[in-house]
């Protein structure tokens, strides 16, 4: 049985407003240890706002977020220490090189990154040669690897990845999936947002589909396909006779292109 005590992330009745606009509407979900949880939704559905509230970048108007047992409003530093975050658009001081960036974030998380540890880390992310390169000089895939290494440098209980494979080539994407799965193997909980249904099906244990700030479906990718495969809307949008998660997603969120 899933109890809040077992959950690495517990979000209850979360509401986020930007002025009069409600971006997140009574959202509740949980993530267990060793689970990859996908938050899917069209542009502007409320994925990033939900994640931002969990990360503490924006303050919710109501609802609670608990990370590893710490309320993000009451114990923000403990909650942030328990999570590793990879933001959608993130950057590091452009004057610093890769080694300096890794050392900075290791120190921020209270870790001492000795030279052997640094070299081992760089080797692990296939960037042994890039130690002295500036972050801006790295390719998209290399930047993503540095970013993920920083996200997980302190072995966080919860890893939040906002569209981690956006803009990556298939090879880099596959490599990242392997890294995400390796994090899961260690028992850490992972939340990722993505527009790629292929990715969600491939790596997520459970997903929630969010639209207009509300969660409209939750389950394993296969259970959602099975549940909705006979819906007329799903049959109408399915192609080549095989129902996919993307068909279910489009049927639930509509064909309209979002801004």
């Amino acid at each position: 049985m899933d109890t809040p005590q077992n959950n690495i992330l517990q979000v209850d009745n979360l509401n986020v407003y930007y002025g009069n606009f409600q971006a997140v509407n009574n959202v509740s979900f949980f993530v267990k240890q060793g689970e990859i949880f996908g938050l899917l939704g069209p542009n502007g559905a409320g994925k990033t706002s939900t994640l931002s509230a969990v990360e503490g970048l924006i303050k919710q108007q109501s609802g609670t977020v608990t990370v590893a047992g710490y309320d993000t409003l009451k114990n923000p530093l403990h909650a942030r220490a328990a999570m590793g975050v990879q933001l959608q658009a993130t950057s590091f001081q452009p004057e610093l090189n890769v080694a300096e960036i890794l050392e900075l974030y290791a120190s921020i998380y209270g870790l001492k990154l000795t030279q052997p540890l640094l070299h081992a880390l760089l080797k692990e992310i296939n960037l042994a040669e890039a130690e002295n390169k500036k972050f801006g000089q790295l390719s998209g895939g290399q930047q993503q690897r540095v970013s993920l290494a920083i996200t997980t440098i302190h072995d966080p209980k919860l890893v939040l990845l906002d569209e981690p494979t956006s803009g990556l080539d298939p090879q880099s994407r596959r490599q990242l999936w392997s890294r995400i799965e390796a994090i899961r193997e260690k028992g850490n909980g992972i939340v990722l947002t993505t527009h790629s249904m292929e990715e969600a099906e491939a790596v997520c244990d459970r997903i929630s589909i969010i639209d207009h700030g509300r969660i409209i479906a939750t389950g394993t990718p296969q259970s959602l396909i099975d549940k909705h495969r006979n819906d007329p809307e799903v049959i109408a949008v399915s192609r080549r006779g095989k129902v996919t998660l993307e068909d279910v997603f489009i049927a639930l969120t509509g064909l309209e292109v979002r801004a």
């Binding site: 503490g56 530093l77 942030r80 975050v85 933001l87 658009a89 993130t90 950057s91 921020i108």
Partner: peptide
Amino acid sequence: KGVFQRLRVSPL
């Protein structure tokens, strides 16, 4: 560039 956002999600 998002440098501050990255720092803000850290425990500082």
